[in-house]
Structure formats: structure tokens, C-alpha cells
Design a binder for these strands. Structure first.
Lengths: 119, 119
DNA sequence: GACATTATATCCAAGGCGGATATAATCCCC
DNA sequence: GGGGATTATATCCGCCTTGGATATAATGTC
């Protein structure tokens, strides 16, 4: 399953994969920066380990949900170790589908009175 | 970790565990009925396998999130094979916390423009 | 009484995860 | 400019959860 086929077959998205895609929604980022972005965005609740991050990135590349860019956001001050990644349209679609799926879960929980009201 | 301690340590809840707790939110149910309830409630998207179900039930019992009841909803027509389960207050709290966590994920995805609007 | 369905339980292999380890480039400060 | 902390990527290990297969037995149906 390289980079085609229905998005549904990718769901449910692995939690780490979802976080990475969301972190790349706004800007291209390199791996280490993704870890920091996710931690910051979740208030420290989600701290991707290095092992999880780089394995997830490999899978996302194979699935065509992200791609590596040679562009450097700030060409002058650069760090040759960094590898920057960009979300693809397909990656955006996958993240959107996953978000919808999560939203449905919350809806079901609400229908069963688990959640007081809507947040 | 038998059945005490902060709810947060239980999060994230395994997907199967969350579905089971939600299915038990309204009524006591036996294992097989939980599978059917989850499948019905999700429009067939989530079909818990038998292996997943019974192992998840064991964990939930150990964690004090559900308990087994001897009560039979309909005492007359009964099936001696069935084992009925009931959600505990702690289980309800765990499901609520997990739903909140999921809701936060959706919010983050929205903040990054992944999701068009609110569902 | 035979056969499909219901119902619980266990085993196996696959996949995702955190944490540890390795290696190297970059930064900072004295 | 030399040395140590930090940044950055990568791989390995073991644990946990999962779907699917298998087993066993009670119940329902005709």
C-alpha cells in the first residue's frame, strides 16, 4: 500500500501518526521539532518518544501522507542534520478523516450520557 | 494497579476498552451483546473480535472499571452461558476522561485547520 | 435429533509504543 | 578554541493491544 487507495483503509490512524500530521498542518518541520510542537500543543500530555517518531515518519512516507523536502525554511542558519517533512494532500485527507472518526466516538459517548455536555 | 489511583494513569484508554465502557453505560450487558451493541452503534465500523473482547473484559475487571453481576435482566428466559457486566463509577469516570481526551484531540486538529468546522 | 447460531475462552502473529542505546552535528561559554 | 550540554536522527528491545483462528459448549430451530 504505497500511496494510493481509499483513505478509509488507513483508519484508524495510529495516535502518533495523527499527531505528526497535525503538527505538519501549518508548516514544514523536522523530526525533533515535531516532538516539541506536539508536546507544546498538548500541554505536555503527549510526548512522542524518538523511537516512535522516526518509525512513524517512515510509515507516513511509505503511505504517501508526508514527503521530505530539500527546502530550508531559513537557508542561511541551517543544521545539516535536520530532515524536513511536509504534509501531502492525501495526508491532510487522512488526518481529516481521523478527526471525524474521533469526533464520532465523542458523539457516541455523549449519546450514552458519558459526557456531561459539549466541550 | 488493581482498582484505585488517579484516573489519569489509565489514559489513554485502549480503544476496545472505551467502546466496552460506552456500551455498558446504559444497561448491563453480556460479552456477546457488547460486540453487537458496538457494531450497531458505530454502523458496523467497529467490530470487536472475540479475542479482543474477552481479554479487554478481563483487564477492565482487574482495573475495577466494570464488575460482573449475578443479576439477570430477564430471569425467566435465561442463558446460563452468559456473563453480565456492569460499569462502575470508576469506569464511568475513566470513559468520561477518555472522551474528554479525544475531544481535545479534535480541538487541536481544528485549531490547525484540519477539520473544516465543527461537526 | 441434526444443524446453525449464540456465547465464552485461549492461542498466535503482527503492529505500535516507550525507553534505552548509539552516533554525530551544533551550540555555548569560559 | 576546546569541552560539555543540547540538538537531531536512527535502531533495538520488550510490552501491550489487536484481529483472526481455533476450541468448546449451550441454546434455538425445524
Amino acid at each position: 500500500m504505497p500511496d494510493s487507495g481509499p483513505i478509509d483503509t488507513l483508519l484508524p490512524l495510529a495516535p502518533a501518526a495523527f499527531h505528526i500530521l497535525v503538527a505538519l498542518a501549518d508548516d514544514d518541520r523536522h523530526g525533533y521539532a515535531i516532538i516539541q510542537e506536539v508536546a507544546a500543543r498538548t500541554g505536555g500530555d503527549v510526548t512522542l518518544s524518538a523511537g516512535t517518531l522516526y518509525r512513524s515518519i517512515q510509515r507516513l512516507l511509505e503511505q504517501g501522507l508526508i514527503l521530505e523536502t530539500r527546502e530550508r525554511p531559513v537557508p542561511k542558519l541551517d543544521d545539516q542534520r535536520r530532515r524536513y517533512y511536509r504534509i501531502t494532500p492525501r495526508g491532510r485527507a487522512a488526518a481529516r478523516a481521523e478527526a471525524r472518526r474521533l469526533q464520532q466516538l465523542v458523539q457516541i459517548a455523549r449519546a450514552h450520557g458519558i459526557v456531561p455536555a459539549r466541550a
